[in-house]
Design a protein around this nucleic acid. Structure first.
Lengths: 129, 129, 129, 129
DNA sequence: GTGGTCTAGACCACG
DNA sequence: GTGGTCTAGACCACG
């Protein structure tokens, strides 16, 4: 269900968070569903429980999942909608700022290269390439 | 010195502001220089003085130029640095948001196309005219 | 400058966060000020750097302080106002819900005791009492 | 069966709703029971039928009671459980927020007084009358 | 069993 | 030097 790349420059907890988000967006994890326990997932992924917990805590603070101590983590009401709204908002923000940059006559290539830079810094440097 | 495209979707006062900014960034207009008067510029560009004034007022409120009643508008101390800081800040913001989008596994093409969309919406499609 | 009680039931990172908030609200730490480094504070308080970092990371995600990797953490623009707004909002929420409870004829003592319960669960159990 | 205080600052329809809720919670009105008609209740309480209807409509939209056109309003399946769940949820919310306030070192008295304020604003000061 | 906090220490990138 | 991630493992409360 989960796959992490320990060599990636994206921190492991971000990879876990991102995959949980995708599972919720895809409707595989639904409102009220219990998600795998911190410990079981840490075993499955061969990482320490603290790393899994960090991913869960971030989603908890965005009200995407909710912790019930002693019972586990559960997908919140409206989590899916919240996630798509979040993503739409980020893309809208990119557009809004890009309009300002266009108005300031900044070369579009400068903007595009910044986006690529951000994505690259998030990716593994593949030595074999 | 100035060129405006009355057919552009970018408001004329934005075009004027953007060109003044470029002249300051390029070092053509320097700290303390007097910039063309509202009246003369409105004649030169064949636009109403109100439009020119709007551009000046925006730059005034960002402390890029400053009005000296009865004498005209002058380029502020540190205007050039302020402008480059502004532009750097916007580009930094693009990068920051792009990192979030990367972390959320949003396809980079979705982001790039939003940037292009913003730039396109700022341009007049000249071919179709 | 800082004092933590390792015996308290309030986690150490919450104590650190709360004290930083108080210093900002009191105007002792101001916008743009650099706050003590993670490592120096961990030495001063005799806790691990990870615990200090957890406190800082929470304040970072609320835009109260901001990390500049390689240079340290700094108090954000508007941090003080944001903190007081936060606190006002929480108290307003208590009042709003209390009105609903009053309208539902819930005994006020049931409500007050819930508040006390929350506060008690946050405090040290004093055995000596 | 019903008592309303026309002098209270709590709207009359809230009083009616609250009393219906109490009757259901107390088990006096049970699932499937027919509740008094809008018309008879408006006469009994000397209020306009519109006020009674407003109380019923609110309970209807929370699926506590349900209208059967031409026959009257009936208590829904599970109404009692739904009501206690609602009340528990509100009290849980008070506790949750109180924990945040405690963590932020807000004086407990500030919180308690907000609760009392909400209850007081809901009551008519009878002595001053 | 569940989540949650903390330690001690390694290691990384960046300036 | 700065922040930031991760491990391995101890220990806690709660159910």
């Amino acid at each position: 269900m989960f796959f992490i790349d320990p060599m990636s420059r994206t921190p492991i907890y971000e990879q876990i968070r991102s995959q949980l988000e995708s599972l919720i967006l895809a409707g595989i994890l639904r409102e009220g569903d219990r998600i795998p326990s911190v410990r079981s997932l840490s075993v499955e992924l061969s990482v320490t429980p603290v790393t899994v917990l960090k991913a869960f805590a971030e989603l908890d603070s965005s009200h995407i999942i909710s912790s019930v101590p002693g019972r586990g983590y559960f997908v919140c009401e409206g989590a899916r909608e919240a996630l798509s709204a979040q993503r739409r908002a980020l893309l809208d923000e990119v557009e809004r700022i890009s309009k300002q940059l266009a108005a300031a006559s900044i070369d579009i290539e400068d903007v595009l290269s910044r986006v690529r830079l951000a994505y690259d810094s998030n990716k593994r440097k593949e030595e074999s390439k």
